[in-house]
């Protein structure tokens, strides 16, 4: 949280919202705003903490500043309620505030900050493999909603979905939108997607109300160095895949403890059971759709009136695990299923 210098004394209104403003008015003011100041009338008057928490929970993403009669000892409450900054009063001692802000608290309850509540830290004492095994044992027969809700509960703020916005992506993204539409969705833009996929991506994002689709791009420098003529896909598809998919996604995904995929058991190339929670390369993979069969996937399209991928009218496309990058030789993807790195990513995508 930042400390802002006191404002110069003037009689001009400073635009701050008084802490006793009704919630509906505060919410109205937040629409489209990228900065809001809430003024605490008295340090004893904790309404501002609830206002901030509610704004954050309802999706306000702009800056939140606390002003007014506040004690340095309230720094933790402000921070945890979702404030980004405090406007100091004239005469306040910034050193006292800084000292309080430097404190790292043990916290029990979830709030609007990044502090990890004790409940989750307790669970984190087990290794990732143990945790995945435990969750898989518990949820192996659960429905997709339950699996995904559990995943969000177990990895709060540390979970993302991988999606290529391919043929069956709508099912998995619809599910995600039901559980938490603000979950990051990592979309790999290889620069080689069909245009239809890109417009489908935008359409689906809007339709499902997903608020956090992140475009993952290959590193420009790496690309210029390794594939200057943009023809590597022809000469060395594996290297192309590594450059355009594996490495960029690896970097983007590193910020998360768990990644949600759209994999289903019936697509698996081996006879092994597809776990709903598993560990791959030090990260948990959550496969909420693992137990669905092709008919159930079809039914979900119908039940929720999900738009089909423009290229998905051929039944084949839908059954193919890989995305449909324009020139990546989509026929080749399933055949490569046994290969190590590329399989990981392509199989994770739908």
């Amino acid at each position: 949280m930042r400390l802002l210098d006191p404002l110069p004394e003037t009689d001009e209104p400073d635009g701050a919202i008084p802490g006793d403003t009704p919630l509906a008015e505060v919410e109205a003011a937040a629409v489209g705003a990228n900065r809001l100041t809430i003024r605490f009338g008295a340090f004893r008057d904790g309404r501002g903490f609830s206002l901030a928490s509610i704004l954050r929970e309802r999706g306000y993403g702009g800056e939140l500043i606390a002003a007014g009669d506040l004690l340095p000892d309230q720094a933790r409450h402000l921070k945890r309620s979702g404030f980004d900054a405090v406007r100091l009063n004239a005469g306040a001692d910034p050193a006292e505030w800084r000292a309080m802000l430097a404190v790292i608290d043990t916290v029990y309850q979830p709030a609007s900050d990044v502090a990890v509540p004790v409940w989750h830290r307790r669970a984190a004492v087990e290794t990732l493999e143990q945790k995945a095994a435990r969750l898989d044992a518990r949820y192996r027969d659960a429905d997709p909603e339950t699996v995904l809700a559990a995943a969000h509960r177990e990895f709060p703020g540390r979970i993302a979905q991988l999606s290529s916005f391919g043929a069956e992506a709508a099912v998995s993204l619809h599910l995600l939108a039901q559980v938490d539409p603000a979950t990051p969705v990592l979309f790999l833009d290889t620069g080689q997607h069909f245009l239809q996929t890109l417009s489908y991506r935008d359409k689906l994002t809007a339709r499902l109300g997903l608020t956090n689709v992140k475009i993952v791009l290959p590193d420009a420098a790496e690309r210029a160095g390794e594939d200057p003529k943009n023809d590597m896909w022809r000469s060395d598809p594996d290297a192309c895949c590594d450059l355009r998919k594996v490495r960029p996604l690896g970097r983007a995904a590193a910020a998360y403890d768990a990644l949600i995929t759209g994999r289903k058991r019936y697509q698996a190339t081996t006879r092994e059971r597809l776990a709903v929670f598993e560990v791959l390369d030090g990260q948990v993979r959550v496969n909420p759709l693992a137990n669905l069969d092709a008919d159930e996937v079809e039914a979900r399209f119908d039940d929720h009136d999900l738009p089909a991928h423009p290229l998905a009218d051929q039944a084949t496309l839908r059954s193919v695990a890989g995305p449909a990058p324009a020139r990546c030789g989509r026929a080749r993807m399933p055949a490569r299923a046994a290969g190590p790195a590329p399989t990981r990513w392509s199989a994770a995508f739908t």
Binding site: F49, D105, Y108
Partner: peptide
């Protein structure tokens, strides 16, 4: 008890 201890939102009711 745990949930309510040093609750950021509900310490100044």
């Amino acid at each position: 008890r745990q949930w309510s201890t040093i609750h950021p939102e509900f310490s100044f009711l």
